[in-house]
């Protein structure tokens, strides 16, 4: 007995070592399985505060690049507006926007937010934004940047949220090829930050390099038609049953700072339903 106690006293650090390693692994695996450990991430109050301070300082350094990018985007948007205007003039008599579609677009509210920390060099990247549940942000909401798709909200605390961006091997977003309608899942292979893969595109799909890829609208997270990128290369999938398209992402995560969170969720359905009820009532009267 005495020997046993001596033994335990001498080697108690072995048990402590095992205990701490077990704790680490529990953290590691729980985080993958459940969404309950938000306090162990950079969205917790202290890390969020420190990162926020830092991003306030460093945001000045990239202003020049962002400015030139905004100008570029402005020009493009102006061009697009003039094009669309001419198209609209041609279609004035038989407008193609249905009232239902319009009400969906109106009910899709956005919350502006800034990125305060981000990784890009890992297989599973995350970014933290400075808006949280007190601003009406919930997990599973979509996040878009000035030039297109960014990701999906993963966790929220009161004032910060953790976003699962496209640049995370666990992220998968349902997308389609614009004007052609073929569906696929947009995934990141963990390699280059400017490219992602559109997987499971059917063999009979017809498309060209340079075609745009946009969200399909088949989930509640994103409405249809948000730009994700352009097709740059076509590969066969490993089993040869479908195409894999290499997509150049429209969002440059290196320069990403200002984003919008789409408050779609259930409000959207609810509002469209309410609008329909109203319309029915008006018709009856």
């Amino acid at each position: 007995m005495k020997n046993l106690l001596l033994f335990l006293q001498k080697y108690n650090y072995w048990f402590l070592f095992l205990l701490l390693e077990v704790c680490s692994f529990i953290l590691l695996f729980q985080y993958n399985r459940y969404q309950g450990s938000v306090y162990f991430t950079s969205a917790n109050a202290v890390c969020g505060y420190i990162n926020n301070l830092q991003s306030q300082v460093t945001s000045y350094f990239s202003l020049k690049e962002i400015n030139s990018k905004l100008t570029e985007q402005n020009i493009q948007l102006n061009l697009e507006v003039s094009q669309l205007r001419s198209q609209l003039d041609a279609l004035r008599d038989s407008s193609t926007i249905s009232p239902e579609m319009k009400s969906v677009l109106d009910t899709c509210r956005t919350v502006p937010a800034s990125v305060i920390s981000m990784t890009q060099d890992r297989k599973n990247n995350f970014l933290t934004i400075n808006k949280g549940s007190s601003d009406g942000i919930r997990p599973e909401m979509g996040v878009v940047g000035g030039s297109g798709l960014v990701g999906v909200v993963f966790e929220t605390t009161t004032h910060y949220s953790l976003v699962l961006p496209l640049l995370n091997t666990r992220s998968s977003i349902s997308c389609r090829i614009r004007n052609r309608g073929y569906l696929g899942n947009l995934k990141w292979d963990g390699d280059e930050t400017r490219y992602a893969m559109l997987e499971d595109v059917p063999r009979h799909a017809y498309f060209r390099k340079g075609d745009y890829v946009e969200t399909s609208g088949y989930s509640k997270t994103f409405p249809a038609g948000i730009l994700a990128g352009r097709i740059v290369a076509v590969y066969d999938s490993e089993d040869g049953m479908s195409y894999q398209l290499k997509v150049k992402l429209s969002t440059d995560f290196e320069l990403l700072r200002d984003v919008q969170v789409l408050q779609t969720s259930n409000d959207m359905e609810l509002n469209t339903l309410q609008d329909r009820v109203k319309k029915l009532q008006e018709e009856r009267q």
Binding site: C23, L27, S42, V46, C47, T119
Partner: peptide, 13 residues
Amino acid sequence: ADFFTNTPGIAAA
């Protein structure tokens, strides 16, 4: 260190 990189448990282990 894990808090800052969103990798709970990895650096700790």
